[in-house]
Each structure stands twice: as structure tokens, then as C-alpha cells.
């Protein structure tokens, strides 16, 4: 690289600097605090005065009788959310793309996007009312149409995880749809014209042009989602769960919240946080390698 180039690029490098500093100060520097996961951290003694306990906190959390069920719930709910969170918005995006009336398309897009802006605190209140077995509109509708017995969606262990997945997808699929719609606009229209000349119908066009055209974005979204597999949605579940569905609905984040945060057991909380970060890092690396091998997709 010549000297001249460097001089030209210097302002550009300077413009990166604030962002870089921000990441260094707020994302990297605090990582030093991870050492308290290996200490019996006592605030009055500080990070350097507290004594070392090795992997004690990891063993403690692992040894608790509930931990296995909680990890299983987390993976189950999270996996279902990832799958449904891919399938539903992709389908919606493809269907919306076929709509010719622009006004109608925009209207649907806006309506399904709206719940994304509501917080779970508000939505949980609304959902508890809608899903109530005695007065909820859903159960009354089901009873009226099919004569079904009221279902206690939020109080029944077997229903709870599915309700979480459904409501999460309902809240977020509008957002995903917009991303996939954006991906659709980047497909070269000439491909469709060529396909029409070759005699391909709508379905064949979708199968051979639309879906392959969206593939890079799908892979990117999937890669990002897999890194989050241990985050099954704290805000959502914390606002809707209750002791009678702990067995199937309690996830890592809500569990650790009750276990460690409320009583300020900082070391335990840090240990679980570190554990989650390591798993996420491994998974995100793995999915990136897979994406790179099989879809020839590169983020970097």
C-alpha cells in the first residue's frame, strides 16, 4: 500500500475510531470481569481480594436437580422458534411478493409488523386475557365453533412451550418478512423473464429462482439465529410463566434470574453467562463453517 493511499484513507480510518473505541470499552474491557465466575466474589473484597474457587460455580449449577430440564426446555423452545421463525416469514414474504395490488401488500406488511414494536410486558398482559380459559376470546371462539373444552394455555405444562413459540413467531414474523422481501427485490428480473420464455409457471419460478435467490439471506439469518440458541426469550417467558409450568417452560435465563440475580449471587450469574457465551460462540462458528462449505456463503 503506497503512502498516497494511506493519506487518502486516513480520514476514513479516523471515522472508524469512535466505533472501535466503543466496542473496546463496552464489549472487550468488561470481559475482564469474567474472572469473578471463578471466584467466590464478595463485593467488599473486590475482584482481587475474593478468593479463587475454580470451577465451583459451574459444578454447582450443573449439579442442581433442575438444571438438566431447564437446558432441555431452552433448547427445545429455542429450536422450535428458530425453525418456525424461518419458515413463517419466508413463506409470507414469497406470498406477499405475488400480490400485485401495492396498497394491499403494504397494508399487510404494516399490520403484521406492528406487534414487533410492543414490549412483552404489554403483550403478556394482552395474551393472558386472550388465552384465559374462562373469559378469553380464543377459548370462547373455539368453544363456540367446535364445542371444544376450554384449554388452559398458560397453565398447562403440555401447551406452554408451544404457546411461547406461536406467540413469539406471531410477534416477530412481520420483521423477518421485511428482510426477506428486501432479499426478493435484489433478484434480477431478467431471470423471471427467461423462465417465462422457457415455459415455467409461477410455482416453478418460485422453486427455481425465488428460493435460490433468497438463499444467502436465509443462511445468514439461520447462522445468526443458531448463535442465539441458548436465548429462548427471557422477556417473553418471564412475563408469562408461573410455577405450574416450570417443568416445561422454565428456561436458562429465567432460571438464572431467580437463582442468582434476585439474590445478587454475582459469581453464579457470571458463570452461567460465560457458559452460554462459549456455547453460542462454538455454535455460531460451526454454523458459519457449514454455511461456508455448503452454501459458499461468507459473512467476512
Amino acid at each position: 500500500m503506497g503512502k498516497k493511499n494511506w493519506r487518502l484513507e486516513r480520514p476514513l480510518h479516523l471515522m472508524i475510531l469512535p466505533g472501535l473505541l466503543f466496542v473496546l470499552i463496552f464489549s472487550y474491557a468488561p470481559m475482564a470481569g469474567l474472572i469473578i465466575a471463578f471466584q467466590d466474589f464478595i463485593p467488599t473484597k473486590g475482584m482481587f481480594g475474593s478468593h479463587w474457587v475454580g470451577l465451583e460455580h459451574f459444578k454447582y449449577v450443573y449439579g442442581l436437580p433442575q438444571t438438566r430440564a431447564v437446558v432441555a426446555n431452552t433448547l427445545f423452545i429455542s429450536f422450535m422458534k428458530i425453525v418456525a421463525g424461518l419458515v413463517v416469514p419466508i413463506t409470507t414474504a414469497i406470498l406477499l411478493n405475488e400480490i400485485r395490488k401495492q396498497f394491499f401488500k403494504r397494508a399487510i406488511q404494516t399490520v403484521i409488523y406492528l406487534p414487533h414494536f410492543l414490549s412483552w410486558v404489554i403483550l403478556s398482559g394482552i395474551l393472558i386475557d386472550i388465552l384465559s380459559p374462562s373469559s378469553g376470546i380464543l377459548n370462547q371462539g373455539l368453544g363456540f365453533l367446535f364445542g371444544a373444552k376450554p384449554i388452559f394455555f398458560l397453565g398447562d405444562q403440555s401447551w406452554f412451550p408451544y404457546v411461547m413459540v406461536t406467540t413469539d413467531v406471531w410477534k416477530e414474523f412481520g420483521f423477518g418478512t421485511i428482510i426477506y422481501l428486501a432479499a426478493l427485490t435484489s433478484i434480477n428480473p431478467m431471470l423471471y423473464e427467461a423462465a417465462v420464455i422457457d415455459g415455467a409457471n409461477r410455482w416453478k419460478q418460485t422453486l427455481h429462482i425465488t428460493i435460490p435467490g433468497m438463499f444467502p439471506v436465509i443462511v445468514l439469518m439461520m447462522t445468526l439465529a443458531i448463535g442465539n440458541i441458548l436465548n429462548a426469550g427471557f422477556d417473553q417467558i418471564f412475563n408469562m410463566y408461573n410455577p405450574s409450568v416450570y417443568e416445561t417452560g422454565d428456561i436458562l435465563d429465567t432460571y438464572v434470574y431467580r437463582l442468582a440475580f434476585v439474590n445478587a449471587q454475582l459469581s453464579v450469574a457470571t458463570a452461567v453467562g460465560l457458559f452460554k457465551s462459549i456455547i453460542s460462540f462454538l455454535l455460531i462458528s460451526l454454523s458459519y463453517i457449514i454455511a461456508y462449505r455448503f452454501a459458499n456463503y461468507r459473512i467476512f
Binding site: 464489549s27 468488561p30 470481569g33 469474567l34 427471557f234 438464572v256 434470574y257 450469574a269 453467562g273
Partner: peptide, 13 residues
């Protein structure tokens, strides 16, 4: 999806 535990920990630290 948020990461409350991580965010909180980072926040505290």
C-alpha cells in the same frame, strides 16, 4: 431475542 443475563452481567461489570 435478547440476552438478558449476558447484557446484565456486562452492564454490571
Amino acid at each position: 431475542r435478547k440476552k438478558p443475563v449476558k447484557t446484565l452481567t456486562v452492564g454490571i461489570l
